[in-house]
Design a protein around this nucleic acid. Structure first.
Lengths: 211, 211
DNA sequence: GGATTCAGTGAACATCTGTACACCGAAAAT
DNA sequence: ATTTTCGGTGTACAGATGTTCACTGAATCC
């Protein structure tokens, strides 16, 4: 009757609890901001006693930073996935939007966390998110610079375009996770797709700024 | 020695206290999210006893909604200010960005509140903000539709462009209030200005979608 | 197989939370 | 001149908060 005794090593057990803490946090953070996250609620949701939390994280902020890390691993894998494909600009937009929508749909909690906390406070978490988004933007600018059509562009123009895309993406992610209806989400996806195309048209007709 | 006895009417005194509550809230909300706002901290900052708060607002959420209202009054006045001027598209962008930057600089607390709480939770405040931004976007789309250059555009395209601008604007506001250095703020202003121009170039080369 | 490590326990702490209640005193209404 | 209205006070309460401390018991090490 007992499903499986499953003799676990100590490390496995610890990792499993850590995972449970992160998951419970993501779950609770669907309904409140990180600053309002309560240690006791969290540990109750996990099924451990409040003090046990400190065996895994020295402070709540450390938990938040771990969540930021996780989230951007997901984002990075997204970027490299797009990069692996055909870098033809026209298809690249559609491909990026599709990949973003797919990742969004299957990992809503992390993206909700990011969009919530991006400007959510003055804490370490918001700072880390903005830093990661900065890195992401730079990475995107570098990739854009590699495309032959944009070869003539200066670093400044590339940064502008990359910023435009990141803003669009983050805003879309925020709208996406706020909508629960699948049809509304599909509509948001289409909107951002067209907006991204519009931005590309803008880029095509852009006369580069002096660097 | 006593500055002025100033005999105040009851209503004047009440209004003054209400204003003090709103200001203290804006002040406290610079460092935490609305969900984490404590009634006792707030009333202590105002200089009244906790229970006195309820003479002005039935609940904390009602305070939040009042702040949302105030914030969008500011935004609306901004929009109409731009509208009053020359609606030539090229100047319109620069004018809008300048007006936005000016309003941002002189009313940071309200804009910080808005950008913090936009995706800040599932509460009534976030809902109200998204609703107001929706209205704002529609208003902008209508204004854009009046411009002769965009006369041929369908409602769908206008909504796309308006959404692009609003996203850009809100993101810029978020960056702006997060930066404390005036030079950083000037840089952000210039960035959004160029990005807006890029979007306009995109709009100019856009082949309208079937409606 | 005995010693050690360590994730998780449970009670206790001082402090903070929102709200209820009876009350006060001055402005407003009669 | 008396009554009513009402913004603000002070006390009190039950519950939640983060952190401390000595502890248990099983997996790990030697």
């Amino acid at each position: 009757m007992t499903p499986t005794p499953e003799p676990e090593s100590r490390q496995e057990k610890k990792d499993r609890t850590r995972r449970a803490i992160l998951d419970a946090a993501l779950d609770l953070l669907a309904e409140s901001s990180f600053a309002a996250l309560s240690l006791r609620q969290l540990t109750k949701a996990v099924g451990i006693v409040p003090t046990a939390f400190y065996r895994h994280f020295a402070t709540l902020d450390e938990l938040g930073l771990a969540l930021v890390d996780e989230s951007f691993v997901s984002l990075r894998s997204m970027l490299s996935e797009v990069r692996r494909g055909d870098p033809r600009p026209e298809q690249l937009i559609d491909a990026s939007v599709d990949v973003l929508a797919a990742h969004l749909a299957e990992d809503v909690p992390h993206f909700r966390f990011i969009s919530r906390e991006r400007y959510g406070g003055a804490g370490a978490v918001s700072g880390a998110i903005r830093h990661e988004l900065d890195l992401f933007e730079r990475e995107l600018a570098r990739d854009l610079g590699r495309m032959p059509e944009l070869g003539a562009w200066g670093a400044r123009d590339l940064a502008l375009l990359a910023g435009l895309f990141v803003n669009l993406m983050v805003a879309a992610a925020g709208e996406f996770v706020s909508a629960d209806d699948p049809r509304a989400r599909a509509r948001i996806t289409e909107t951002v797709r067209h907006q991204a195309r519009m931005a590309v048209v803008g880029a095509a007709g852009w006369s580069p700024l002096p660097d």
